[in-house]
Design a protein around this nucleic acid. Sequence first.
DNA 1: CCTCCTGTTGCAAATGATATTCAGTTAGCG
DNA 2: CGCTAACTGAATATCATTTGCAACAGGAGG
Lengths: 157, 157
Amino acid sequence: MQLEELKNKFEQFLKQKGHKITRGRFGIIDKIASYGTHFEIEELVRWISNQDKSVASRSTVYRTVRLLQEFGAIREVIKLGNRTIYEFVAGKPHHEHLICVECGTIIEFYKEEIEELQDKVCEEHDFTPVNHRLEIFGLCSACKERRHENRGLEATA
Amino acid sequence: MQLEELKNKFEQFLKQKGHKITRGRFGIIDKIASYGTHFEIEELVRWISNQDKSVASRSTVYRTVRLLQEFGAIREVIKLGNRTIYEFVAGKPHHEHLICVECGTIIEFYKEEIEELQDKVCEEHDFTPVNHRLEIFGLCSACKERRHENRGLEATA
DNA sequence: CCTCCTGTTGCAAATGATATTCAGTTAGCG
DNA sequence: CGCTAACTGAATATCATTTGCAACAGGAGG
Ligand SMILES: [Mn+2]
Ligand SMILES: [Mn+2]
Ligand SMILES: [Zn+2]
Ligand SMILES: [Zn+2]
């Protein structure tokens, strides 16, 4: 399993920074990995404390998420209003997101051509890209249908 | 000037929603228009209160920015950490942003092909896009140079 | 114009997410 | 082991944004 590999690399990372290898930090990684999808920190905090309060406190979760971001295992993938949605990117290939503003459904996609065009744009502006985020907000097919139905009822009322 | 036209349309918008035409709301529009670039709300609040405290209070600025967003004259264009950068889009054509993480410089760009590819992706997922945001974070040319210089010094130390 | 009703404003206080402080606890080098 | 620096949890602070509320001002109708 590549989760172990990631943990090893994270260990290296911590050592290099003069940080310590602690139970809490690795417990959090396990929790995030088993959570399995996009998550918000508060959501994660609640989930962890429901499962096993001894893993880590809210403060440690926030601190560790930060470390994992620096390390590169976690990305802020969606910023909607004052919510921040993260993703565990262990091994997962890079991708972007479609977000349904009605029901919150998240659809992932990857378009090579878009990536290439971005590089082109950066070159044109002598800009060195480090990372990027493309968010497309709209309605998923289910919500679009639901809206049509409702509109129909209103029209006949 | 198209600012007047925008104000007229905003007036229509307000009436339709059962809202009132007030000095404060239009004063804020003028301030945002004359501010001229991307802005953060707190920044705008400070700027307005430096210029003319009688225009509007912090609360009214927040409330009005919200209205202008609904109306479509303002967009949240950049979300970085816990900062939100807005833009007055009156008449300005749609575009995306390159953001220098070192100095904060913002470069605007527009790539038709990227827009088209996005539409394609949405179709493929039966998703109805409402709006989108593409943020590319990295280093502007000036900051890239500066880094190289520093790296050079460190290397010889 | 005046009146009245409703939406609006400013301020203070509430939120909610995230950061920080600090005192007690551990990791891990020697 | 023993020590010291890093870590942790709980409480507290911060920062942006929102909300409650009492005073106030649009604007429709007279
Ligand atoms: Mn994803
Ligand atoms: Mn812009
Ligand atoms: Zn949906
Ligand atoms: Zn720069």
